[in-house]
Amino acid sequence: MSLTHTSPTRKLKDKSAYIIAGAAFVIAIIPLISILWTVIVKGAKDFDTYFLFHSMRNVAESDSFGGAYHAILGTLEQVGIAALITIPLSLMVGIYLVEYGRGRLSQAVTFFVDVMMGLPSIVAGLFILSVWILGAGFQASGFAASLALTILMLPVAVRSTEEMLKLVSPALREASYALGVPKWRTITKVVLPTALPGIVTGMMLGIARIMGETAPVLLLVGVTQSINGNPFSEPQGSLPLFVFNESQNSLQTAVDRGWAAALTLIILIMLLNLIARLIAWWKAPAASR
């Protein structure tokens, strides 16, 4: 028996697996890089501080100036409100499912969270349209869009909270109980801090998902070219909607603004991701730093 001899077929299998895995990675990354590259190149033309801090009020589509401020403000407010509603709600649902839920009710909650996960975003938009605007008689507003975005973010946030809480070792809970710490304090002081980095990442993924949603926003925010800082009344701008509208226009000046707005959206989402990473790193168990 030789300890130095490796069979040729094994070497071949190893090499081919290595090449296939590498190729798969390259294929997966090509669209990503291509999208980023295209958006940066085409968006850079109009992207400047003027673009970021001016609206489209009294700007004609054929003008080369004009900006996305009204849309950026609208998106930040709509997503912010949706996150303010969703984060505490999903934390509590996640804690219920992992720490307290037994039997029928928790099974039902899990089932409906799964159903909501697959809900097309246009359906969430139509639901709010029929209940909030057509049913209850409210006007189109940023808040109506926030409600639809909440429906879309909730299942993502609940599921990730649930998974992260499940990862916390039962030994830690037992250690806390054995010190005579009540269950609710064990959850708030031991379980949640341990799971926090993962939960923050999950919430950020949820926010990133709803930030780019166009369909529900299209139905709910109304039409405006002006700055409206109040999400509760009057139509409000939205970044994905702005991208959509400008890119539909036949004028090159409008299309350029669409690319710049798309670049803005990507940068916003990346910034949020970066902040989430920082929070997760800062709150991570110190030993793993």
Partner: peptide
Amino acid sequence: VGMVFQRPNPFPT
């Protein structure tokens, strides 16, 4: 009545 477990389980955070 305090307890010490089989595997050391300090709180990681």
